[in-house]
Computed example of a mutant assay.
Amino acid sequence: MEGKAKLWRDRVILVAVVWAVWALITTFLVQPFRIPSASMENTLQIGDRIVVNKITPRFGEVKRGDVVVFKDPGDWTQPVPSGNAVFGAIRKVAEVTHLSASGSHLVKRVVGVGGDKVSCDGSGNKLKVNGVEITETYLKSGVQPCAEKFSITVPDNKVWVMGDNRSDSADSRFHDDGTGKLGSVPLSDITGKGLAVVWPISNASGGHNAEDAFAKVPAAE
Rank of each mutant, 00 (worst) to 15 (best):
L106K: 07
G47L: 09
E211S: 07
T26V: 03
G112D: 04
E61W: 01
P32H: 08
G206R: 12
G83L: 02
I50K: 11
A38D: 13
G124I: 06
V129Q: 10
K54P: 02
V217Q: 02
S151M: 02
M1F: 13
T153H: 04
S184T: 13
N209G: 04
A38Q: 10
H105A: 13
K181Q: 15
E95W: 00
A219T: 09
D189C: 09
R34F: 00
I25S: 08
V197W: 12
D116V: 09
D164T: 08
I152C: 10
S141R: 08
V143P: 00
I90Y: 00
N125K: 13
M40D: 03
Q45T: 06
G83K: 00
D156E: 11
D164Y: 08
G207R: 12
T43A: 11
I190R: 02
F87Y: 03
H98K: 09
E136Q: 11
E95T: 02
E211K: 14
P36C: 01
F33N: 03
D66Q: 04
Q144V: 00
S172W: 02
T97F: 10
S169R: 10
W8T: 12
S141M: 01
V96F: 08
D66E: 01
R166C: 11
D48R: 09
G112H: 05
F28Q: 00
P79C: 00
E221A: 15
V118S: 07
L7G: 10
D212F: 05
K126Y: 15
V68E: 04
K128Q: 14
A219D: 13
N209D: 05
K140E: 13
L44K: 08
D72S: 12
P79E: 04
I134F: 10
V68Y: 00
V111M: 07
A20Q: 07
V143H: 10
F59E: 01
H98V: 05
G3L: 13
P155A: 06
L182M: 15
G103R: 12
F174H: 15
L195Q: 06
D48H: 08
N130V: 04
K117N: 14
K149N: 00
P186T: 05
I13M: 03
K126V: 01
V15G: 04
W8M: 10
V154E: 03
F214P: 02
G3P: 00
R58P: 05
P186S: 07
V198K: 08
